[in-house]
Computed example of a mutant assay.
Amino acid sequence: MSAGYLVLLLLPLVSAQTYHWGPCPTPKTQPNFNLQQYLGRWYEIAKLPVSTQKGKCIEANFAIRKDGTIQVRNARFYKDKVRWAEGTAVISDIRDPGKLGVSYSFFTPYSPYWVLTTDYTSLSVVYSCQDYFRLFHVDYAWILGRSRFLPPDTVRYAQNVLIDEGVDLFRMAVTDQTGCKDI
């Protein structure tokens, strides 16, 4: 099977995402990342398209389970219903604790969840990437806030963090957080 044929087969899978030729980049993550300070609720302010994350009022809640694992509980309002997804996060590299991995099934590998920057109290900028045979990669990026809305200067700062790391924000979309109640 030629590489071109393989790309044509995979293209419909990534058409909603942001893809680029070549392997995934490796941006710098938050120095001295502190998981305990990161725990709690984060609201999605904006993201690069993710076909499985449609809806409004999107939020993620990080907590430590009794067994010591990291629970990630995502919620969104979609088609007149609240939809939940619960996963597990791990610190992928103890030398770089801002590099987390998240999985939502026992059968799927951990996907990168790299915290590029956070002040823990208002803003977090997260990046992820899926590499396909080092031929092309799909970028994912999120701007998260501790509140449903962030000041425009804060959003611009977050966008610049991603741009400085070479992330193309052309397809970044603002998440609808209007009329939302805590889920």
Rank of each mutant, 00 (worst) to 15 (best):
K81Q: 11
Y120G: 05
Y113F: 13
V115F: 04
F106P: 13
T108I: 10
V115P: 02
V82Q: 12
K81G: 08
K79I: 12
E86S: 08
T118Y: 00
I91W: 10
V90C: 11
D93K: 11
G101M: 09
T117S: 15
R65N: 07
A85C: 09
I91F: 08
Y120N: 05
G68V: 04
Y110H: 04
V82E: 11
K81N: 11
P109E: 03
D93P: 11
S92M: 08
D96W: 14
F107N: 09
A89C: 04
I70V: 06
W84H: 13
K66S: 08
S105G: 12
G87N: 05
V115A: 02
V72F: 10
Y113G: 12
N74K: 02
G101S: 05
T118C: 11
L100D: 01
D80Y: 15
F77C: 12
Y78N: 12
R65V: 01
D96A: 14
F107G: 03
T108H: 10
R83K: 13
D67I: 02
S111D: 08
T69S: 01
Y104T: 09
I91R: 09
S92Q: 09
A75E: 10
W114L: 10
P97I: 05
A85K: 13
V102S: 02
W84N: 12
A75F: 05
D93I: 04
F106D: 15
L116C: 05
Y78V: 15
D80N: 14
K79V: 15
I64R: 12
A89E: 00
S92F: 01
Y113A: 06
N74I: 03
R65F: 00
D67E: 05
F106N: 10
S103P: 13
V82C: 11
W114I: 10
T88K: 07
K81Y: 15
P97S: 02
F107H: 07
K66T: 01
D67L: 05
I64A: 13
R83P: 05
T69Q: 03
Y113M: 14
Y120D: 06
Q71E: 15
L100R: 05
G68K: 00
T69N: 01
V82M: 07
K99Y: 00
I70T: 10
T69H: 01
K81H: 15
R65P: 04
G87F: 01
F77N: 14
G68S: 07
V115E: 13
Y78K: 15
G98Y: 03
I64F: 14
P109R: 03
Q71C: 04
R65Q: 03
G68Q: 02
I70G: 03
A75S: 09
F107M: 10
T117P: 10
Y120S: 06
I70N: 05
G101L: 06
K99S: 05
T108R: 06
L100K: 07
T117R: 11
L116T: 04
R65Y: 00
D80A: 03
D93N: 12
R95E: 07
V102F: 02
D93Y: 03
F107C: 02
